[in-house]
């Protein structure tokens, strides 16, 4: 791979890539900039890029008026809760598939993935109805359960691929050493798989955080997470650009940061291992 690259070519590549990167990133950048403007500056013509009166007032207004913290908290509970619950259910299942494979393991794995392909809208009403009957509509519990279920196949899948990389002999050694199944998973498998589990958690928090079908259709004011919070700006309130930008920035910032850490896992998790 020792390929001589001329400085000129590298400079050209760099300039082009940065230009394209900035164009793609621009909507986010613009949103972040606008969030620090006054409403007047936000819609000024010609647009103001960096030279405007920087202000934080939009953030405090958004927080005061729409109770951002409550939505944020809902998002945290729903994304975190569904991921945690998913991991708890998926670790034993992935252990089984990775270390005690049978002829049916592959079929079960494929079937689990296929449930992920079920279009949500196809089962919208039954879920809606069940939520009403069970009193789960507009509750965080309800969303935790639904998001856990829709992400469970990905969690099982990712953990399975990570577990497969752990030599079975080590688990057998633990068994010879007198570890029970619970101890084997708790003291040996889990610590060894921590990097894989962490990536799985990260990716699934992101997916749950951004999920915008069930979170919009199964919540109202009480349990709505940030997706619903932002959707409420589709009304004329959205015309207050600076405030919309502040709200948007707050909604995406946490996950943008997490996302940057999880680029590699993203490929693994979203292609079900079909691209390596």
């Amino acid at each position: 791979m020792a390929r001589a690259v001329t400085q000129r070519r590298k400079t050209f590549n760099t300039a082009l890539a940065w230009a394209v990167g900035l164009v793609i990133f621009f909507p986010i950048l613009w949103t972040i900039l606008t969030s620090f403007k006054t409403e007047g500056d936000a819609i000024a013509y010609p647009p103001k890029f960096l030279f405007f009166d920087w202000t934080l007032e939009n953030y405090s207004i958004v927080q005061d008026r729409s109770d951002y913290m409550r939505y944020l908290w809902n998002s945290v509970i729903i994304a975190g809760g569904s991921t945690l619950l998913g991991i708890i259910v998926a670790v034993p299942a992935a252990w089984s598939m990775a270390f005690v494979p049978s002829k049916r393991t592959k079929d079960i794995l494929m079937w689990m993935l296929s449930t992920k392909m079920l279009p949500a809208v196809g089962v919208l009403y039954p879920i809606y109805l069940m939520f009403i009957k069970l009193g789960l509509l507009d509750t965080r519990t309800g969303l935790v359960i639904v998001l856990m279920l829709i992400n469970l196949p990905i969690i099982v899948w990712m953990l399975y691929t990570y577990f497969k990389e752990i030599p079975g002999e080590i688990l057998e050694a633990a068994r010879m050493d007198g570890a029970t199944l619970r101890e084997e998973i708790l003291y040996i498998l889990t610590p060894m798989a921590i990097p894989g589990i962490a990536s799985t958690v990260l990716l699934n928090v992101i997916l749950a955080w951004n999920e915008a079908f069930w979170t919009l259709n199964l919540t109202a004011a009480k349990a709505g997470p940030l997706t619903a919070f932002i959707a409420s700006y589709s009304s004329p309130e959205g015309l207050f650009y600076a405030k919309l930008s502040a709200a948007s920035t707050m909604a995406i910032a946490p996950i943008l940061i997490l996302g940057w850490f999880s680029q590699k896992q993203l490929v693994r998790g979203l292609t079900f291992g079909a691209v390596k």
């Binding site: 940030l226 919309l244 995406i252």
Partner: peptide, 15 residues
């Protein structure tokens, strides 16, 4: 380049 993928759909729609 990767950033837009992490923006929640409601945010990207509105912005």
């Amino acid at each position: 380049v990767i950033a837009p993928f992490f923006v929640m759909p409601t945010v990207s729609g509105l912005l």
